[in-house]
Design a protein around this nucleic acid. Structure first.
Lengths: 217, 217
DNA sequence: TAGATTGTTAATCGATTAACAATC
DNA sequence: TAGATTGTTAATCGATTAACAATC
């Protein structure tokens, strides 16, 4: 019986999210029990790493048998907080904002977008994917009323900081930022930047190296 | 004069992309020279780390003075490949696909989306943000003709692997995957998953810890 | 029992940070 | 010159991997 769960790194969190994804996609009933060896193989990871990660989320598997799949899934879901949803609001109902609003799956991941904001008068009052769009002026007030702790920013870079400030005025404590902007927040607020430029830089470098290693054709 | 540029980590690449973003947003002419100390402070990083990162991209700054801003910008741009653009195609013209097509800034980052694909007959033949939408059946053929090496996947998870296979048939060597799916690719192909679920998991954990440290209100 | 698999302890590796010398 | 800043070498830290004991 494992005891003190070790603190977890961001990289490990990402992997754990991957495991869940993988486990849920396995054909129903095909693997009542699954081993770290198989998971590692399928996902291209080290098996010890998989076991270490899994040691953080539940109370372990059984030697010779592996981990009970259904149990592992609910352990991970609990660990990632998928079972107690947090409410969020989204600011900036452009294409990306609409895409995120329409993407129904966030609920599965414990995120519940309950309202949207925009500065465009034509959008205010309308419904996008079942969520009402309010004026950005209402951000602080509505966030307080709804007791929202998570704000998603999908506005142009130039407006990102201002929008962020209003969210924080409304009591938001976590910012998920999709704008290509550097935003500063006080210490009591956390921010996760979804930096496409950085991702693209990584992809480009990977491609370049790979072309060197395996030839350009 | 620094000599052998060290190999660079993905984390470092992300930071370098951040530096560029920051440098470009500085008021024109205000800082002809900028120090690693200031960059580090503004971006909440360690100054030695900033210097190490910058040592990889150009041929350094001057003691007491710092780095010449204009030079640093073009060094980073060159390093990240922003000056020689790569062509890419995008598959899946839903909300997210549209958002990426409409997002004009990829050109600045050296990525040039030249065509899109979808399976919806109503979309095929139309133009989205100036790019023609073709049938997914045409993927291998058109990718070969256009000599495209980068494919962006924004289809539902269930179709992602199939779409990926077609891209690879067409000679694509790098996949930027936005579908919440585990895709397998041969070794000569690189893949970068844009995993929203993982990002969200990180944000949630950060929020939870922060609420513990700074109180829930 | 024998063997597959887990979980843990120790070793390795890589990235970050600290200390300091070089230099403009 | 003195001091700010760079760049480098060494130390630290954390994450990954290897080796192995425990166990079903």
């Amino acid at each position: 019986m494992p005891e003190n769960k070790p603190r977890i790194s961001k990289a490990a969190l990402g992997r754990i999210s991957q495991y869940l994804n993988y486990l849920k996609k396995l054909p129903e009933g095909a693997y009542p029990y699954i081993s770290s060896t198989i998971i590692a193989e399928e996902l291209g990871l080290n098996q010890v790493q998989v076991r270490k990660d899994l040691a953080c989320v539940g109370n372990g598997g059984k030697p010779k048998i592996g981990y009970k799949r259904s149990e592992l899934i609910s352990d991970i879901e609990h660990f990632l907080g998928h079972d107690d949803s947090s409410d969020a609001v989204l600011v900036g109902v452009g294409n990306l904002g609409k895409a995120l609003l329409a993407y129904g799956n966030f609920n599965k991941y414990g995120l519940n977008i309950i309202a949207a904001f925009d500065s465009d008068k034509n959008l205010i009052g309308s419904q996008i994917a079942g969520k009402t769009v309010y004026s950005v002026d209402k951000i602080p007030e509505l966030c307080k009323t709804l007791n929202v702790k998570i704000g998603i920013i999908t506005v142009p870079a130039s407006e990102a900081q201002e929008v962020c400030n209003r969210l924080i005025d409304g009591g938001v404590r976590a910012i998920w930022n999709f704008a290509p902007a550097i935003i500063s927040v006080p210490k009591r607020v956390v921010i996760k930047n979804e930096d496409m430029a950085a991702s693209l830089a990584v992809l480009s470098k990977m491609l370049k190296e790979n072309l060197l290693n395996y030839g350009a054709d």
